[in-house]
């Protein structure tokens, strides 16, 4: 019996993809992220939830060093991707971001054709040897973004001409085109209508089979639908991190419970 439990547990557990220890983030003098430690698993959807301004987006942006673009932001602590510290001096953020992709809140396709939007990442990272290769990558990415059927006849139309939901799926396809290992999504559905949201959520579920997905969301229902692990942030602290079902049915910390029942946030 013990063996069986162990095997079951082994099947459930995935490798640790990102391991964050004692992360502090300062915006100038403001201490935005206070001593956060979390282990993100591979092939899993991890949700970051919490009230507005609690630091979830900030922490997310640390994972692919997007905070580097903000001058007054200072990050301390360790964040390891596959055992390597991403803030190591030898690490070029450009290479990091090929491995850790990001999808933003408001869909931001480039003012280029759909084809060029997807092809941009592979081109700059030199992932395709020739045009046929590139065509292949574009098609695969668009399929993975669950948008291929809708745009396969108009690959050279501008990306900005699509509807909101299509644009976001385009951005997701663009993000996977660089063959990342981790996919970060910052409130990907907040600018979309319910039908588009449903499409994207379905897509996220498919994506977790190949990538580690971290999604920041405002909607607890979405977190419950989509993720396997959930982290609850509050005022810059990571309050609780556990399986999604446990967080939503039997949270340990009273703050978590207050948030879930709607008393705060």
């Amino acid at each position: 019996m013990n063996d069986m439990t162990k095997i079951e547990g082994a099947i459930e557990m995935n490798d640790m993809k990102i391991s964050a220890k004692g992360v502090q983030v300062y915006y100038g003098d403001t201490h935005a992220i206070k001593d956060v430690s979390v282990e993100i698993e591979d092939k899993t959807v991890t949700a970051f939830i919490g009230p507005s301004g609690c630091g979830k987006s900030t922490f997310l942006r640390c994972l692919n060093r997007m905070n580097d673009t903000i001058d007054i932001c200072r990050v301390e602590g360790d964040i390891l991707l596959d055992g390597e510290d991403i803030y190591d001096k030898r690490v070029d953020p450009v290479q990091l971001r090929a491995k850790v992709g990001m999808v933003f809140q408001k869909p931001n396709p480039f003012p280029k054709s759909i084809y060029d939007n997807i092809a941009y990442g592979p081109r700059i990272h030199g992932l395709a040897k020739n045009k046929a290769d590139l065509d292949d990558i574009v098609e695969k990415s668009l399929r993975r973004g669950a948008i291929w059927d809708e745009v396969k006849d108009r690959l050279h139309a501008p990306g900005t001409g699509l509807s909101g939901g299509q644009q976001q799926r385009l951005c997701i396809a663009r993000a996977v085109a660089t063959e990342p290992e981790v996919l970060l999504m910052d409130e990907p559905c907040s600018a979309l209508d319910p039908i588009a949201t449903a499409q994207v959520e379905e897509l996220i579920d498919e994506l977790r089979q190949s990538y580690s997905v971290v999604i920041v969301t405002h909607s607890m229902q979405q977190a419950a639908r989509v993720s396997q692990k959930t982290a609850f942030f509050h005022l810059g602290n990571l309050v609780e991190y556990d399986d999604t079902t446990k967080i939503f049915t039997n949270p340990e910390d009273p703050r978590t419970e207050s948030y879930i029942t709607g008393r705060i946030g």
Partner: peptide
């Protein structure tokens, strides 16, 4: 659906 993931050469970030 997940072909693209495995055959990648995992290079070190460092």
């Amino acid at each position: 659906g997940a072909e693209g993931a495995a055959p990648r050469t995992t290079s070190s970030l460092l």
